Simulated scan of single mutants.
Amino acid sequence: MSASTPAATRRRGVSMADVAREANVSGQTVSRVANGRENVDPETRARVLAAMHRLGYRPNSAARALRSGRFHSIGVIMFTLSSFGNMRTLDAVASAAADAGYSITLIPVSHRTGGEVSEAVDRLSEEAVDGVIMVVEAHLLDEREIDLPAGLPVVVVDSNARDRFPVVDTDQAHGARLATRHLLDLGHRTVHHVAGPESSFSAMHRREAWERELRMAGAPVPPVHVGDWTSESGHEIGRALASDPDVTAVFAANDQMALGVLRAMHEAGRAVPAEVSVVGFDDMEEARSFWPPLTTVRQFFGEVGRRSVEALIREVEEGELHGVELVPTELVVRESTAPPPS
């Protein structure tokens, strides 16, 4: 079989010269089409694209990156893939990146150390990314051992960048105020809080806003109960709350812990919402199927992911830097809240 046969061409890879011969145009014309240039006649462009399709030609992204200085690739460093919010955010980041013509490279961070974050950034640098979206715990970005390459565009999600990088996040504080105010407006004397881990940026802001709203209303501030985002921790804390007859309202920092609280209340024979009202945070799909359906604070994870990609691309392509961009939250009232028993 000669080197000019289609099979041989496929084995060695299709070049621009092959496409040029197939379309009967110059190599420069093929290059302009491959790089998305506008100065090509529409009929000629169509002929070149058809030739590319027939031959199976794929533009060399590495060569294009050398010419343009960009790789059209985004790195994502994410603390955990197990949480509802992170998976929804990652899904939105991937979709928004694809829509913008970028691929993503994901590096999970498991041990919560600044050194591991630095290693993840080094790995992404080797993968030739244009910038990085970081979805990590707050304290990791405070550690001096984190070393980022100079000039690498970075956007932070759900964490505290301390003015080092642009931040895109849910308005955590506003959501917690909505939840607390809802329960107070129903007539509850105070609101007990099941908080997330103390190392969590989101949990910290929800807890601070809950306490601030109680103090502004002149309501007592009960001791905080700290969970770990799981329904098991919510259940354990809920058992203690259920044993206290003075507890009539509970705000849990996420829906999974709220589910554990609901179970504990049912097991203790305390009716929800007739005796105890419960509010969650996230509005995960299953929240409407809890019993009773859960009143919760809706986060728009898709919007957070989309805006983080937009902010990073603006930084990569235009050099634009923005401070903190907050995505609003919304209270979704269902059947798990009601006025306190008279």
Score class of each variant (00 low, 15 high):
V121D: 00
A203H: 04
L241W: 09
G196E: 05
E317G: 06
H111W: 00
D130C: 05
V224D: 03
T170M: 10
G238L: 12
V30Y: 05
E211D: 08
F201W: 15
H72S: 12
R334P: 07
E275G: 08
A287F: 12
G175L: 04
S95C: 09
T113R: 15
A34Y: 01
H188F: 04
R298Q: 14
V333G: 11
V297E: 06
R12C: 10
L66E: 01
G302C: 09
V333N: 09
L124C: 01
A209N: 06
E38H: 02
R270Y: 03
E211I: 11
L66P: 06
S95K: 05
H205T: 06
S83V: 10
S26W: 00
I237L: 09
V76E: 02
V157R: 15
L81Q: 09
F290V: 06
A51G: 02
A46Y: 05
A173G: 15
D244Q: 12
A209I: 01
G319W: 02
R54D: 15
D91K: 15
G69P: 04
A217W: 10
E211S: 09
T190W: 10
A7T: 07
G302L: 08
A209Q: 04
P245K: 04
E213S: 11
G69K: 07
M257V: 08
F290T: 02
G36M: 03
L106C: 00
S2Y: 05
H225Q: 08
S243C: 04
A62V: 15
G302D: 09
P273E: 13
A34I: 14
A128D: 09
S15G: 05
E310L: 14
E43T: 10
A217Y: 11
N160M: 01
A96P: 00
T44H: 01
T337L: 11
S110A: 13
P153L: 08
Q172I: 00
V14Q: 14
V333R: 15
A150M: 03
E116V: 02
E145C: 12
H53E: 15
S83R: 08
A65E: 02
A138Q: 13
P328E: 14
G305A: 02
G56R: 11
G260H: 02
D228I: 06
A219C: 12
S61Q: 15
I133V: 13
V30S: 01
R306G: 07
T80P: 00
S233G: 11
T113K: 10
V155G: 05
L262P: 01
A20R: 06
G131T: 05
S15D: 03
L49C: 02
E318C: 09
P149K: 14
S118F: 01
N39Y: 07
R164N: 10
R10F: 00
F165I: 03
L312Q: 07
R21N: 12
E330T: 14
I74K: 08
S289I: 03
G13P: 15
A179W: 11
G280P: 00
G85N: 03
S199F: 14
V19N: 01
P166Q: 13
R306Y: 08
E38Q: 09
A150C: 02
P222D: 13
E236A: 14
A20M: 09
D158R: 03
T29L: 13
S277K: 02
A3M: 14
G115C: 04
M134V: 13
I104E: 07
I104S: 02
V261W: 00
T113N: 12
W210V: 12
E126L: 13
A176Q: 05
N86W: 00
G175C: 08
D18N: 10
V332R: 00
V109Y: 05
S2T: 13
